[in-house]
Write a protein that binds this DNA or RNA. Structure first.
Lengths: 119, 119
DNA sequence: TCCTTATATTGATGATAGTCTATATTAAGC
DNA sequence: GCTTAATATAGACTATCATCAATATAAGGA
């Protein structure tokens, strides 16, 4: 059975593999780098996802169970699952299964990489 | 005659006015802040726009004439005009008319603000 | 095995937005 | 005023994507 991956997801999956990124203001951004970098910014270009990151950051253990996100965000469970998947594939979150639950943590290196890309 | 402004543009226009932004990882991002911050990231979530910024940064005077962008990017003139408008409204670019031509410069403060928002 | 709960996937829908052609506007020079 | 060149806008088309209800899968306990 073939796994279906659309163009956008494939693009996002490649992000984690790329070392990325020539600082924007230093110039010389290649078209490929632009595509990869833009894909990550597009992931952040969604209020619900930013609030998820903020919520995770406020937790004492810096992690959150997926089941805890739907209520404060006012979103349906599949929507939360979708956003978590997008951010995980973009390399912004790491996930760990503990029993029935799945916990997500922020990968600060990815955010640091974005910060330098804006320098 | 009424000026037509759609919801997205209105959101973007508000960005420049907002002081913004509680650092993401410090938590406590309000829904409004999330909307404003996401709107700016969405502006950066477009390869063509990132390449425009990169192109401007490589210029000796740190500025570029709108007329010089279409060719290297392989885009039509109205498309370039659209992207420049979006970035200008988002507070990423400043514009100066000199005769028939319009020159754009990057506003580094806005990028700095984004960097801190990722901290 | 069955039941319950958590998470993921599917498929549909509506909204957003990037792109183009065609046209309008603006500015400068004659 | 007229002409030319630069920029902006309008409108159409398309692709992407956020969202949901419905359903499937995964994991643990009785």
């Amino acid at each position: 059975m073939a796994v279906h991956i659309d163009a956008c997801q494939y693009k996002i999956m490649n992000i984690s593999k790329t070392t990325c990124c020539a600082p924007l203001l230093s110039g010389g951004l290649t078209p490929d780098e632009a595509v990869n970098l833009a894909a990550i910014f597009r992931v952040l270009g969604e209020p619900a996802r930013l609030q998820m990151l903020s919520l995770i950051a406020t937790q004492p253990n810096q992690e959150v169970c997926a089941c805890e996100l739907a209520a404060p965000l006012g979103l349906a469970q599949p929507t939360v699952s979708h956003h978590l998947k997008v951010m995980h594939q973009a390399g912004l979150l790491e996930r760990e299964r503990r029993g029935t639950w799945i916990y997500y943590r922020i990968l600060p290196e990815k955010l640091a990489m974005l910060r330098t890309s804006l320098a």
